[in-house]
Structure formats: C-alpha cells, structure tokens
C-alpha cells in the first residue's frame, strides 16, 4: 500500500494512500504549530481588542479602545516615533560599520576568507545576554572605553543607561546579519567591473561611488530590512543597557505583560510591531523595484 512513496506522480488510488500516510507524518508538527503558533497569534490579535480591567483582569468584550487610546496617548506616540527613529539610526550605524568588512571579505580569498567569515558568524552563536554583558563591562563609567577617551584628554560621555549605549550594543549585535546580507548581495560584484572602471581612468572614490555602490544596493536593502526589523523588536539589549530609562516598543511590551499585567495593551503593542514589520517589508519591496528600474 505504501508504494506511492516511490511514485512521483501517483495515480488516484495511490495518491489517497500517500495522503493518508502524510497526514500521520505531519500530525505532530501540525499540533505543535497549532498550539504554539497559530492559536497564540490569533489569540494575541483578538486580545488587542479586549478590555483591560484593573488588577490584571481582562474583559472579553470587543473594543477598539486599546487602539484609539494608544494613538491618542502622547507617551505611546512618542514611544513609537522614538522606537522607529532609534531603529533607523541603529540600522544606519550597522550598515556603515559592516560595509567595509563585507567588501574586504568579498575581496579576500582562501583560508583567510574562511577564517574571517567564521569570526563574523561566531558572535551569532553567542547569547545576546553574554554580548550585552560584554558591552556593559566596556562602556561602564570607569570602563576601558571611558578610560581611553579620558586618556586622550576628553571628558568621557555617559554611555550606559541611555540611548547611546543601546545603539552601540545593538549595532555590534546586528553586524553579523548585515555583513552576511551584504556579502550575499555582493555576489553580483565582479572584480573585473572594478578593474574596468579603473582602467578607464576612474579614481578609487569615483569607482566606489559610480560602480561598486550601485551594484551592491540590493544587498544593502536586504541587510537594512533585516537589521531594522531585528532592532525594533530587540529586547535583551535595550532592557539591560537602557537600565529602565530607555523606552522602546519591545521593552514596553515586556513591561506591560509582566510588570503592569495589562495584557490587552501588550497585545496591541505587539500587533503594532507586526504592522511596522509589514510597512518595512513594503518599503523594502518598493526600494528593490526602484533599484531594478535603475
């Protein structure tokens, strides 16, 4: 009965038996998906239209009050604008810090390139908590970075428990994603094109500006999309490095869910993050189309 296993285009009777087996094989993963993904997400969407009662209670009424309240509250409007602005800033910083590394890696070859690529990927395998802790140690008031700045004769700025620290930490944490995206996009950058531009008399700067940069735009767009969505939904680094003084969407979701126990509001903020995701994706596909059309 299970011969259909070996039949790419099975006949009608076989197809039904293959389908029967497939249902059995797919049941466990479907169950986990339903319990741990579909049901929670649907519930989250519905929760954003529920009403929060004092003391963590929830009224199962359908109301748009969370949404209208959110969009009328100055605090939350500022939170949204601030989150988007900080995430954009982090994305730009990540791009600037990653581009030279990606370009260098693209031009490197052999074992050296493999070694450097492993170095780029290795932070990805390290917990965000560990890396954030490393930044706390580096940026502390009497920390090594502050000492270096002081040694150069400047007054070291405060870098912890404010947006500066969060931006520095997240920039570093998101760099591997950006570098890998850029390298994927650099695939279409043929070294011969550069050589051609140079032999035609272009200066290095003009070569970069007129030839290299335009060719690598798709990789840049992909990396920026990825880093923006990761930045706006990042939680560990803003929470630990912000010291409760940096308010971003993700930290607010956590505080509303765990501290204030206002689940409908937390759900509404979560849905808002998803909406911003969608908007970022729309911008990305528009940008890609514009690049395609030259």
């Amino acid at each position: 009965m299970t011969t259909a296993t070996f039949d790419l285009a099975a006949d009608v009777p076989k197809r039904s038996s293959a389908a029967g087996i497939a249902v059995v094989l797919l049941l466990p993963i479907a169950l986990v998906n339903a319990i741990g993904f579909i049901l929670p997400v649907l519930n989250l969407a519905r929760m954003s239209f529920n009403e929060a009662l004092p003391g963590g209670g929830i009224a199962e009424t359908l109301t748009a009050a969370n949404w209208t309240g959110l969009l009328q509250d100055r605090f939350y409007l500022d939170l949204i604008v601030n989150s988007v602005a900080v995430s954009l800033g982090i994305t730009l910083a990540t791009l600037l810090a990653s581009y030279p590394i990606a370009l260098y890696l693209h031009r490197a070859s052999g074992a050296w390139r493999t070694f450097l690529t492993v170095l780029v990927i290795s932070p990805l395998l390290t917990s965000a908590v560990v890396r954030t802790y490393g930044w706390i140690a580096l940026l502390a008031e009497q920390g090594p970075v502050a000492n270096v700045i002081a040694a150069m004769g400047f007054q070291p700025p405060r870098m912890m428990f404010n947006t500066t620290g969060v931006v520095i930490g997240l920039t570093e944490i998101l760099m591997p994603y950006m570098i890998l995206s850029l390298m994927a996009g650099f695939g279409r950058l043929d070294p011969k094109v550069e050589e051609a531009a140079r032999t035609l008399g272009a200066t290095p700067f003009r070569t970069f500006w007129r030839v290299i940069l335009p060719l690598t735009l798709p990789g840049i767009a992909l990396g920026c999309l990825l880093c923006f969505v990761l930045a706006i939904s990042s939680f560990i680094t803003p929470k630990l490095m912000g010291g409760g003084r940096v308010f971003l969407l993700a930290t607010e979701i956590y505080d509303q869910a765990i501290v204030t126990l206002n689940w409908p509001l937390a759900a509404t903020l979560s849905m808002l993050v998803l909406i911003i995701f969608g908007a970022a994706l729309a911008v990305y596909s528009r940008v890609l189309r514009m690049i395609d059309q030259g």
Binding site: F6, D7, A9, K14
Partner: peptide
Amino acid sequence: TTLRMIAGLITPT
C-alpha cells in the same frame, strides 16, 4: 517510463 512500469516504480494508468 516503460522500464519503470515493469519495475513497479510507476503504475500504469
């Protein structure tokens, strides 16, 4: 296709 039908890897219509 004929050979695979003889082998049973494909069922004839």
